[in-house]
Design a protein around this nucleic acid. Structure first.
Lengths: 241, 241
DNA sequence: CGCGAACTTGATGTAACTCAAGGCGAGTGG
DNA sequence: CCACTCGCCTTGAGTTACATCAAGTTCGCG
């Protein structure tokens, strides 16, 4: 039983741009099916061409990369609404892998159809570029955090980001949201060791900032968290000549 | 005196995809002018909307981000052929700044025209998405390097990447290329201190891997460099059922 | 000649790493 | 139902790859 785009539970969320009737009809045709996967499933693999692209309907996952020495870099956490496989779509090859962490439901598209998307409905092509730009911005922030900040700030930043995204896609309830990852995943995302990550999480817990237990994240002091997590300033003061 | 797209010195490079006559004509119209800037010029500023987008014709620059605590993250080095301002173009706001490091010549486009690009010539919209995907892949690699690898490997990786790109855009000569940045820039790109960066560069010099003096990078032992710089494996072995 | 920008080098400090061990809950099998 | 394993989290002790501090050198420039 597949979901019609018209009935997509994500579309009404304020986080997403509105669809025109025409776009809706187009996406309905573009979508070739729906897919259910279990935790641990590899959806896309780094260095390979995938014939399929996905949009996450529900569930959570991970984008990650394995290096020659065997270490892993988690690129980002995958949430409902995320488009998976842009690189495969336009370049042919993926630079990272994508893996399901919970049960996931995904819309499936054909890689080969992506060109027709640009051609027949430029609005959708533009939307794809928009998504790519958002991803680029996120990766810039992640790079800055991993490169420049101490462990305490890194973890606060990651948790704050995650929580806000969770809220935006409607999986948060009050000041809590599901966080079905392992501490090792977070460590791999931020370039920290598991042990150190654990200690810093303990500190944030003791300080009453946040608690992460049983796959649930609870924000105890949002103001404080935001303050620690803050990455860059707004626009600089305007010059006067 | 502006360069016609037809005469663009970059276009023939093997690194770039071919243009159709139609695309060429379109880009000629899309381009609103040419711009010359001096070292130190801020082309785009994080957190602002820019009415102009650019493609680098010649010269070198930096994408970077300034954090609340004043530290800087260099996102990437800007080379001829790089498109600047995608984020401003499709999202409105830049997540990082772009600054000229040498004299630069740039093609100038109007932000407002970007939508017409998708609409009237989808091939060009697709090209833009392609660029964005390449950037995303690069940022993933950078994140993995900064997050997981020791200083020695980071620097080797950065230098190898830089040299290959330089070669691809035709600014390398033999085993040398211009590298008009400061050690501080490299340090800020890799999340290292200036002092440590300096020491590791010294080590690579002593070991006969590479030399960076007077704004010129010389690769002394490419095989060794590649070996240190290697980031990830190719595609994994294929499973058999 | 004095000054600032960039590079270099040595000494000292520390944030985060590794190693090692133990606890706890869930599953499994005798 | 208990013994065992396994995955995950937690904590302490010792180590190290970096950072920071502090000079000193070189070079171009006003």
């Amino acid at each position: 039983m597949t979901t019609k785009c018209e009935d997509c539970p994500l579309r009404p969320l304020s986080q997403f741009l509105r669809f025109s009737a025409e776009e809706l009809a187009f996406m309905e045709r573009f979508k070739t099916g729906e897919m259910q996967v279990q935790p641990g499933t590899h959806l896309l693999t780094q260095g390979t061409r995938s014939p399929q692209l996905f949009t996450t309907l529900s569930g959570l996952g991970l984008r990650h990369k394995t290096l020659v020495d065997g270490s892993r870099q988690v690129i980002s956490f995958v949430m409902p609404g995320d488009f998976l496989g842009l690189q495969a779509g336009v370049m042919g090859e993926m630079g990272h892998s994508v893996e399901a962490v919970t049960d996931m439901t995904l819309c499936v598209f054909n890689r080969a159809d992506i060109w027709s998307l640009f051609k027949t409905l430029p609005e959708r092509g533009y939307a794809l570029a928009h998504l790519a730009a958002i991803e680029e911005q996120f990766l810039g922030d992640a790079l800055a955090t991993v490169g420049q900040r101490p462990a305490y700030d890194k973890i606060a930043w990651a948790m704050a980001r995650y929580f806000h995204r969770a809220k935006a896609v409607g999986i948060a309830k009050g000041n809590t949201c599901p966080l079905p990852f392992r501490q090792q995943h977070l460590a791999d995302a931020l370039g920290l060791s598991l042990v150190h990550t654990n200690k810093v999480l303990g500190r944030l817990r003791k300080e009453g900032v946040l608690v992460w237990t049983d796959d649930v994240l609870t924000i105890r002091d949002m103001d404080r968290l935001e303050q620690i997590a803050a990455l860059d300033d707004g626009p600089p003061p305007r010059p006067l000549i």
